[in-house]
Simulated assay, not measured.
Amino acid sequence: MSAILPLVRPDLRDFAGYKSARSESLRGDVWLNANESAWSNPADGEGRSRRYPDPQPPALRARLAELYGVAPAALLVGRGSDEAIDLLVRALCVAGQDAIVVTPPVFGMYAVCARLQGAPLVEVPLVDGVDGFSADLEAIREAALSQRAKLVFLCSPSNPAGSAIPLAGIAALAGALEGKAVVVVDEAYGEFADGPSATTLLAAHPNIAVLRTLSKAHALAAARIGVVIGNEDLITILQRCQAPYPVPTPCADLALAGLSDAGLAQTRERIALVRRERDRLLDALAQSPGVLRVYPSQGNYLLVRFDDAEGAFRALLAAGVVVRDQRAAPQLGDALRITVGSPHQNDRVIAALNAREQAA
């Protein structure tokens, strides 16, 4: 039996899922099997959008697999990494029985998907130390085992904390939870980090899954393209649970264009610029009056504590700058998250905060 199958909900282990018209391996030149229009919409010049898309567009799946260094069969393309989170929780967690472990303050979709599935939520808070926030992997292991968790979500780099988790720690946790839980490493901001991807651990640890997205570093947020990478048996199960036609043809075309050699070269240049600007913005904010602490970050954002977070938030808004208010999150009652923008945008952030202090 597969190492992953025992972790799947018992009622879904033999689940075949919905078989769409495009999932059948049929050939012909007159397609009358999906109740599609025989005519194109006038807005669709090439007429490609009148047909349902392939559930997993082969060219896009192959290009993403090449980008992430995995086999196409180990990767499922979906509606951003948000869909992957939801699929994992629904496929593995029996409602009211199988828990998920999260590490607040962290991305809220893990808890949302748990709530929708009726999966108990186990929180193991990040530890706020001298070097920034860090995941307590030993406490996570103990919580996962004692609370019968099926999924452990590790956001690395963490949103909003900005900290990354060493691969050795992820591997050790996966080893301790083998046969009991899947360790999901959310690398939405992985392109901005210093270390290698957790995909390098997949061969040795079948109970690791990795989430990636084109929304951040690749600047394709509106295309809604994300992937889950993992054990091929897990990917098969998740695809069976996925709603039909997850990747619209225009989105797949846009993603492929963005992942061309020229597109990737530009992406690498942008990533390098963001990393330089991240350092510059951190230094400038650390010297700004009213800033209590700026956390080091491996993402494209900075978590900042203020002596008057409300005043800072309002001052930025008055200057036309919108940042993320984190004050409702655990441990972050005085914090804002500021995305690293263009050099000009970052200058506006610095000027607005310095002007606030000078006015005071």
Rank of each mutant, 00 (worst) to 15 (best):
A329M: 11
V77Q: 03
Q358M: 03
E66H: 06
W31F: 14
A172T: 03
I4L: 08
A62D: 13
P105I: 07
E24K: 11
G226Q: 12
F153S: 00
R276P: 07
D11M: 14
N35L: 04
R337K: 10
S81H: 11
E269I: 13
N346S: 09
D29R: 15
P206M: 10
L202P: 01
C155W: 00
V274K: 02
P104V: 07
A164I: 04
H218F: 13
Y245H: 06
I208V: 11
E191A: 13
N231I: 01
R337S: 10
R270T: 04
L116Q: 14
D253E: 13
G320H: 14
A312P: 04
R268S: 06
V274A: 10
D136R: 03
N33C: 09
E138C: 06
A257H: 09
F153N: 02
L87F: 14
P296H: 11
P330A: 06
L75N: 08
R148T: 04
Q358H: 04
C93Q: 00
R275M: 09
C251W: 07
G69T: 07
P6E: 07
F192I: 10
L126F: 13
A119M: 08
I208E: 04
L302Q: 05
A319T: 13
A111R: 08
N33V: 08
D253L: 09
A257Y: 05
G28I: 13
A21R: 02
Q97G: 08
N231H: 14
V210Y: 00
A34G: 01
L173Y: 06
A171D: 00
C93P: 00
A172E: 11
I350E: 05
A119P: 00
H205F: 10
F107A: 02
V106C: 10
D334E: 13
C155I: 09
G195T: 09
P296F: 07
A59I: 02
V247W: 00
A265H: 11
V130M: 05
L202R: 03
A143C: 13
D347P: 01
Q326D: 13
V89A: 00
H205S: 01
L137F: 01
E123Y: 15
G320A: 15
Q97L: 02
P120V: 11
C155G: 14
N207M: 06
G341K: 10
S215C: 11
L332T: 02
D334A: 15
P125G: 07
G132R: 02
A329T: 10
A203I: 03
A43W: 07
T199S: 12
S156K: 02
G118F: 09
A139R: 08
Y68N: 07
A198R: 07
N231P: 01
A335F: 03
I237F: 04
V130Y: 10
D308T: 03
Y52M: 10
S40Q: 15
G80A: 12
A188H: 06
N346C: 12
A255I: 15
I338Y: 02
V8T: 00
L302M: 11
V228G: 01
P160M: 14
D11T: 15
Y110M: 10
S49D: 15
R240W: 02
A209S: 14
G320K: 10
D307Q: 07
C113H: 14
G47M: 15
L121M: 05
N41Y: 15
A243S: 15
P296N: 13
A265C: 09
V247K: 05
